[in-house]
Structures are given as C-alpha cells and as structure tokens.
C-alpha cells in the first residue's frame, strides 16, 4: 500500500519537471526534427520536401564553413577552457584572504549576462581605440607592437576573428571552475598529508594523486563543454563579429540557423541545420562516453 503511495508521490513531485521538459525541450525538439524535412516560412503552411534540405546543406558552402568553424572551435576552445578552469581550481582551492577574491573574479565573467559580455568585448577588441589594441601597441611605433609586427586584427582578419571568439570563451569558465573547485576540496586531505610525508613534489602530487582523482569529473565536464561549445559561440559571434569578416569566418552553426530562419525566413532549412548540429552533439557525446568506458575497463583489469 505504502509503496504505491510512495510511487504516486514521486510521480507528483516529478510531474512539474517532466511537464516542463516535455513542453520546453522535447516537443520543440520533435517539431524541429520534423520541420527539417519541410519548407516553411512561418507565413504559408509548411510544405513537405523530404531530404531536400539536407542535400542543399551538403552543397551549401556557407553551411560547410559554419560546420568547420564549429568543429574547430570545439576542438580548440574546450580543452583550453578546461585547462584554465582546472589550473585556477588547483591554485585557489586553499583558504586564504586572497583566494576568496580571486575565486569571485574567476566566476564573475560567467555571471554577466551574455549580451553585456559580448558588447564589452566589442569595445575591448576595437582595432584602434579598444584597450587591448592600445596595450598591444604600447612601446611600438606606427601602430605596430614592440616587436615590430602588426597586432592581431581581431575583427577584420578571419583567423584573428576566430581567435577572438575563442579568447572570449576562455573567461566564462565560472561553472566549470566552481565544480572543479568543489571536487578538489572534497578530496581527502589526509591523502595529501601522507604525500607530504613521503616527500612528494608538487608535480608528483599533481600527477599521481590530484589528476587521477579528478579525472572522472574532468571527463564529464569535457563532454558537457563539448555539447555547450556548439551553443555558446552563438552570442559572441553575433554581437561582436556579426558572422565574422568575410568569408563567414566566425559563422557557427547556431548563427547560421538563426540567420537562415529569422532573416531569410527559411525555417525548414534552418531546422535541418539545427538537426545536423544535434546529430553532431549526440555523436560527440557517444564517442567520448565510449572512450571513457574503454579507458575505465582497461584500468580495472
């Protein structure tokens, strides 16, 4: 009797979340996938066209550029972000007067609304008047750096623009940092004291104790970041570079979808691009999961 009641209570408590999940995530997901096979402009009824959208995507040079950009961004930004978050967590996990302020500083950029963050960087990266350019040109002559080279053309050169978007993403590691900090602080302190007694150097401790103990969480965060990286490039790319210096240097898949849908009114095509992005995400997660499992199995043997 009580078991049934327990189950009913559980169901009732889960209900609001499940409702939200269905309405806000699963239903739009399903609609997107179906839309990907139609031609739809929000004004006239959708028209079924099968896989035409996907064939068109394959031939679309702009989409191909967006795809490569997104993959490159994930490949470069994600490991960098994790490394920075981990380094900060390891540096700042001990109690001290300085650590508290430093931790807040590390988390702050993530707390800033994305639009405000993007607009701030628009100013920072301004080629002539922005602080970064001013600092880079300091000490140099005629607008060159101290070493006599031209400073990076953040907003006008394709490669430098991509670097700028990656640079912007390196500071929003607040969530990852907080998680890694919590994990580091939860590691048993007596194990570290023992290491001190065994005269282990900082590097030994990092390699033999900290890294293996934090590795499971790091892998999970890697997976999470890889999923998110496809999305959080959207706002900076839009606000700061508006798709980037030609040719579409910082157009990522989300930006491509946004443009195609809301500026060109091709919602079916945009849905197809989004579906490709979703498929990529699933593939990335599956791959990482498999690698993790294989690694664990090897280790346990």
């Amino acid at each position: 009797m009580t078991r049934d009641r327990g189950r009913r209570q559980l169901a009732m408590m889960l209900a609001p979340y499940l409702l939200g999940l269905t309405v806000l995530v699963l239903a739009p997901f399903a609609v997107t996938v179906v839309l990907a096979f139609t031609e739809y402009d929000l004004i006239r009824p959708p028209r079924w066209i099968g896989t035409d959208n996907f064939t068109a995507l394959a031939e679309d040079p702009i989409f191909r550029t967006a795809l490569v950009n997104s993959l490159l961004f994930a490949a470069v930004a994600v490991p960098l972000r994790l490394t920075i978050a981990l380094s900060l967590a390891l540096l700042l996990h001990r109690r001290s007067r300085f650590a508290g302020t430093a931790r807040t500083a590390a988390v702050l950029p993530s707390a800033v609304p994305e639009i405000a963050y993007g607009l701030l960087w628009l100013w920072l990266l301004n080629p002539l008047y922005g602080p970064i350019s001013q600092v880079l040109r300091a000490g140099g002559q005629n607008g060159l750096t101290v070493f006599g080279r031209t400073p990076p053309q953040w907003l006008t050169d394709p490669v430098d623009a991509r670097a700028a978007i990656i640079l912007m993403s390196l500071f929003t590691i607040g969530e990852t940092f907080v998680i890694l900090l919590a994990v580091r602080r939860s590691l048993p302190p007596d194990v570290y004291e023992l290491a001190a007694l065994e005269d282990a150097t900082g590097w030994d401790v990092l390699r033999r104790i900290t890294w293996p103990l934090m590795r499971p969480v790091l892998v999970l965060l890697l997976i999470r970041d890889a999923i998110l990286s496809l999305q959080f490039s959207f706002l900076p790319a839009l606000v700061v570079t508006d798709g980037g210096p030609p040719p579409y240097a910082t157009t990522y898949i989300p930006l491509f979808s946004y443009r195609t849908a809301f500026e060109y009114l091709r919602y079916g095509y945009a849905a197809a691009a989004t579906a490709v992005m979703l498929a990529l995400t699933v593939a990335a997660v599956a791959l990482q999961w498999r690698l993790l499992r294989r690694h664990e199995a090897l280790r346990d043997r």
Binding site: P188, V191, E193, L194, A196, L197, D199, R208, I209
Partner: peptide, 16 residues
C-alpha cells in the same frame, strides 16, 4: 615532513 624520515599511519589510513 618529507625530509624527516618519518612514517605515519593515519586514523583514516589515508589509502589512495
């Protein structure tokens, strides 16, 4: 600590 040539068994054993 590492230079004192001392071994310690902790109450929690502190095994890795």
């Amino acid at each position: 600590p590492g230079r004192r040539n001392v071994s310690m068994v902790f109450q929690s054993y502190a095994l890795f």
